[in-house]
Design a protein around this nucleic acid. Structure first.
Lengths: 231, 231
DNA sequence: CGCGAGTTTGAGGCTGTTCAAAGAGGGTGG
DNA sequence: CCACCCTCTTTGAACAGCCTCAAACTCGCG
């Protein structure tokens, strides 16, 4: 036993169809790890020795270019698996997952991946669907980057965030982890200056309320209209 | 029998490890289809009834935005499988694969996907690796779109093309299928005008030789230098 | 309370788009 | 076989969105 609560893992969509037996087999080879804010679960370029499941918290996956520029490739939400580079025939991790909030991850050695998907075929199918969705999201973002201007891209990014990380509040939907203007810029391929200007404009329109590493969406419908037709 | 030559399929990396028995089972449910230049194998939004393997030719996978803008999400090369949306829990195709050159595709009904990967586990692993590579390429392009200017993005796109579709000629490497300035623009998120200007500049530098739907890379190293450090 | 990280806002300049028009290649039909 | 036409390509000029540079401001933590 590793101190991981099976019922917590079971409650995740990815694992809900597993039997008690399968689940305990899965957790037998797992370890638990706490990741403080600002720390990385692993570093881009390191050999891919483990794959992971995010139980709690939030991770920003960054990629750094040879010349030092950084972008956020995606955000890992609780319940997501990540870092299974080895399953994708890579020997090193393609990005760095940084904890945006205090996080809790389950770790498996990559060696068990093969035996796991053999023993638990539904897991393989789930994993494939997960990558498929990720690929589609990547294509969607590519299309946005190619055809939309910054304001609409930012609107789409914020809408995606409240979909996966939104917490209802009295005055709107809050993004439930610390996120800076710089982060939003790295998600949309622009600068923090432009993000700041656009958010200021949105605030004047009553669409959002800003704050230091905070964002509250007051009018999701208004934002969606802006994202869709550019109104 | 469907008239598909097993040895042709066997020669593809994706299927090379299959036994004769597995291969004939695979081809039993398949049909062959010829796709003329300019025609689509299927249309974006259609129900995903089949998945495919490109035997010969070249496909440009396009996505159209609600407001009519178009981008090229990726290029399908011979040996690639495509259109397996159903395996990724989608009921419709996310894009439209257009034949850039006369093409030949193998078609399977989506129903056989499940039984196939059960019977031939290596196929499931291959498929997963394939999607994984595609995801990485998408992330790479996202990073380029976010951080690089048009000229470097175009250089990267051309280098990727000669990697998968390059044919050695006496004076350089030719891109082995008809590709227009418009196509290159839709791959790099710019306009055909800008692509034309950049190619003209490259031609003046002796890096490439252009032509109507033609491109010959005379100095791949020079292009790579330009793509890497922007020299 | 002071410091540092994050944010806001302005001004100017550059890259790339938009609009416009002319030129060239290649296929087709007479 | 040639002329025509359609599509693709080239090039120019003006404009615009966004970035860069710069500086001030503010929130929150130690």
């Amino acid at each position: 036993m590793t101190g991981i609560d099976p019922s917590v893992v079971r409650s995740l969509p990815m694992f809900e169809q597993l039997s008690d037996d399968e689940l305990s087999r899965l957790l037998a080879s797992a370890t638990l790890r706490r990741v403080p804010v600002g720390k990385a679960v692993f570093e881009q370029g390191q050999p891919s020795t483990h794959f992971f499941l995010l139980l709690h918290g939030r991770l920003k996956v960054t990629q750094v270019t040879p010349d030092g520029q950084q972008i956020i490739v995606r955000v890992v939400h609780p319940g997501d698996i990540f870092g299974f580079a080895k399953a994708l025939q890579r020997d090193d991790y393609p990005g760095t997952p940084l904890a945006a909030a205090e996080s809790l991850v389950v770790c498996w050695p990559t060696e068990v991946w093969g035996t796991l998907i053999e023993q638990i075929p539904s897991l393989a199918i789930n994993a494939m669907q997960t990558i498929g969705q990720r690929l589609q999201e990547a294509h969607t973002r590519l299309r946005e980057m190619a055809t939309e201007e910054v304001e609409r891209r930012l609107a789409h990014a914020v809408l995606r965030l409240i979909e996966r990380a939104g917490r209802q509040e009295s005055t709107g939907v809050r993004i439930d982890f610390p996120i800076s203007r710089q982060d939003l810029a790295e998600m949309t391929g622009t600068t923090l200056h432009t993000v700041s200007r656009i958010l200021s404009a949105w605030e004047a329109l009553g669409l959002v309320t800003g704050g230091r590493q905070k964002l509250l969406v007051r009018d999701a419908e208004g934002l969606r209209a802006l994202a869709e037709d550019g109104t």
